[in-house]
Design a binder for these strands. Structure first.
Ligand code: SF4
Ligand code: SF4
Lengths: 136, 136
DNA sequence: GTATTATAGATATTAAGAGTCTTTAATATC
DNA sequence: GATATTAAAGACTCTTAATATCTATAATAC
């Protein structure tokens, strides 16, 4: 019962891309090295992010990935959703009407998701940026 | 990324045991039939609940399971914890100090858990009870 | 003692996640 | 246009965790 590694990779990648100068692309090679994982695997993760509209990609020489135009609206939940899909933590296949067990579990999960939807990754990026400046 | 079936079984079983007359035991056979699953498998789930102190068991003839004396304090989170363990949804193995990604994820999860800790299963049982009366 | 019932251990099956390898398509540069 | 570069997609393997079954053991009531 935990989020997949892929979600972790995705979060880091998105933050990293947010820190790049406007318009510049980064190749999967570099992104993979940064997180010490295989490029082909990360590539699959990045494709999910692209399909969700969170990042953009250009193939070919000088190509790579860059953050989407919606940069300032991307939340933690957006990334999680892109990678994990929209499955529910608690998924009873029976669905008796008005079931309080399901209701309670769903409600708690909804609250968590609402909180994750309110947290923007661009804020994390800003924080990382100012931390770098402190150190230098 | 979802709770295991075992958690679902556990929740139902606990509620069911709460609905029994005080002091009476129910065998795993009956509990398994109710949920249409194998007794031996449910047995393992129930053992986890017992080890967590949520239910009590007596072997031998006329034995079985009954709800613990702490009946009125058992929360959703207690059951989840007993079955799933205390793993975290987001578990970064690196742990950079002051990491905001981890902090944000953890905080959201903590809030969900807090909510699940505040929901008592005995309230679900009461609701089920009054619903039964309506129907009869 | 006998029947009943929980417990534990070993083992098998299934499903999902994680990861690799190879091929194809798109783009830039020359 | 040829070549190098890079993303995308598909097939495939490996690993792990959940799910489930079977068998043997221990405790209890009668
Ligand atoms: S009572 Fe609720 S959780 Fe249980 S089987 Fe029915 S719908 Fe599912
Ligand atoms: S930045 Fe945070 S989430 Fe990322 S590796 Fe470091 S501790 Fe883990």
């Amino acid at each position: 019962m935990r989020y997949s590694n892929a979600t972790n990779y995705a979060l880091h990648t998105v933050v990293h891309l947010m820190l790049q100068p406007d318009g510049s692309s980064v190749g999967v090679q570099e992104l993979a090295e940064m997180q010490q994982l295989s490029p082909t695997y990360l590539s699959k993760v990045l494709t999910k992010l692209r399909k969700a509209g969170l990042i953009e990609s250009t193939p070919g020489a000088k190509g790579g990935y860059k953050i989407s135009r919606t940069k300032h609206e991307i939340s933690f939940l957006d990334v999680i959703h892109a990678i994990e899909g929209d499955t529910s933590l608690f998924d009873c296949t029976i669905h008796h009407e008005g079931c309080m067990i399901e209701n309670t579990m769903r409600q708690a999960e909804e609250n968590m998701k609402a909180e994750l939807a309110s947290k923007l990754l661009v804020d994390i990026a800003k924080e990382a940026e100012s931390k770098q400046k402190e150190e230098s």
